[in-house]
Simulated assay, not measured.
Amino acid sequence: MPISIDCPFCQPQDDPHQHVVIENETCYFLQHDGHQDILEGTGIIVPKAHRPTAFDLTPQEWADTYELLHQAKAYLDAKFAPDGYTLGWNVGLVSNQTVPHAHFHVVPRYSDEPYAGKGLRYWFKQEANRRQGR
Rank of each mutant, 00 (worst) to 15 (best):
H70N: 13
D6S: 15
Y110C: 02
G84W: 02
C27T: 12
L87E: 11
Y85L: 03
N24P: 07
A49G: 13
R51I: 03
K48D: 03
I22M: 09
Q11I: 05
Q31W: 02
V107N: 00
F55N: 13
E61N: 09
A54C: 14
A74D: 13
Y28G: 07
T42Q: 07
D112W: 02
Q71W: 03
T86I: 02
K118R: 15
R121I: 05
M1T: 08
E25H: 12
P100Y: 10
A74R: 15
H70S: 08
P114W: 13
R109F: 02
D33P: 01
M1K: 11
R134C: 02
K73G: 00
P108Q: 02
A128M: 05
R121C: 03
M1F: 15
S95R: 15
C27S: 09
G34S: 07
P59C: 08
A63S: 15
D112I: 02
G43F: 01
C27F: 02
T58Q: 15
T86N: 15
Q132V: 04
N96F: 14
H17G: 07
D37Q: 10
Q97E: 13
Q18C: 12
R109W: 05
Y28E: 02
G84T: 03
P8Y: 01
V91S: 15
A54E: 09
E23M: 07
Q71V: 10
S4Q: 15
L76V: 11
A54D: 09
I22W: 09
K118W: 09
G41A: 08
C27E: 06
V107M: 12
V21A: 07
K79D: 08
P8G: 09
Y66E: 14
Q132E: 08
Y85R: 15
K48L: 04
P2D: 12
T26V: 07
